[in-house]
Amino acid sequence: MAKSPLIRDWLPIMLILAVFAAVPSVAQAMGQPFAIKVASRILVFAIAAVGLNLVLGFGGMVSLLHAGLFGVGGYVVGISSYHEFNGEALMLGPVAWGGSGNLLITLPLAALTSAAVASLMGVVSLRTSGSYFIMITLAFNQMLFYLAVSLDRYGGEDGLQMLGTLNLAGFDPSKRLVYFYAALSVLAVVLIFSQRLIGSRFGMVLRATAQNERRVKALGIPPIRYKLAAVAISGAICGLAGGLLAGGTQFISPADMSWVRSGDLIVMCVLGGLGTVWGPVLGAACFLLLELGLSGLTNAWQLPFGLIVIGMAVYLNGGLVGLLRRVRAA
């Protein structure tokens, strides 16, 4: 018999948030303030991975676009700060905007912009499916990448260093703890929202579409609209994560949006398991800690890492969820 959703879904989320909330005090007690920085980075990528997983795990769409959407969010925060600092207005068609270093304004803007870009690219890529979809999202990711490279005014290939001061509801996000708690709050909101989402009417349709699109159509539901909305929502979440990264490090560059990053995000989702909302948080933590651990052992860390990814693909047929299903069936 299935466990109650309270235990199956909400308990892990609360546990994860509680463990993260304890990180600063533990790190300080152990004299390892660096750990807070690492944890913040994990939080940011966890947010992005949770966002991607709505599309990947629940929508069944293998998207390689999400690093690009992440980067769009980062650039929105960066460019807004650039204009505020330099005192030049940003011309958005007829509207001139002075820019802003206020993350309460620019983070939502980052989410909205990424959602808009995701929708635009979704409209084209969702006309296709399967391998075409994967390749198109990859190509769109590179399109965004080259767009960032072409922005000479904002650092081009070298990226955009934010010189102005940012503020977050009166706090300074370059302070380690402020940033950590900001990222943690965003993750909490994103997790709660996503968990509600997949149990909602919308979530049921999305998950059904991933299993059998033809059946969903025969039930009278046009799947494309739901897939598009999911792409937009997950784009918004990735944009938020990208904005957070830029806001914390005061830096964003095209390297943050290369398609390899999209691959990393997929690996995070698979590592943690596609079947739950919270799985990708564990995946992001594993991924980044593994990266940190391996790169401490050897400078050729990508070699063992690549082998781990290959092993994962060979043995976790269909991800952890697939593994679980096989165990259950056996």
């Binding site: 691959g263 994962m312 693909a313």
Partner: peptide
């Protein structure tokens, strides 16, 4: 390696070949 993946999901295929890229690149670097 890859013949095992013909009947797998696209996601598995993306994963395994993504892993191969990492291995090839790092191997070449070494």
């Amino acid at each position: 390696l890859l013949r095992r993946f013909y009947r797998r999901t696209h996601l598995d295929q993306v994963l395994v070949t993504f892993g191969l890229i990492l291995v090839f690149n790092e191997g070449a670097r070494q």
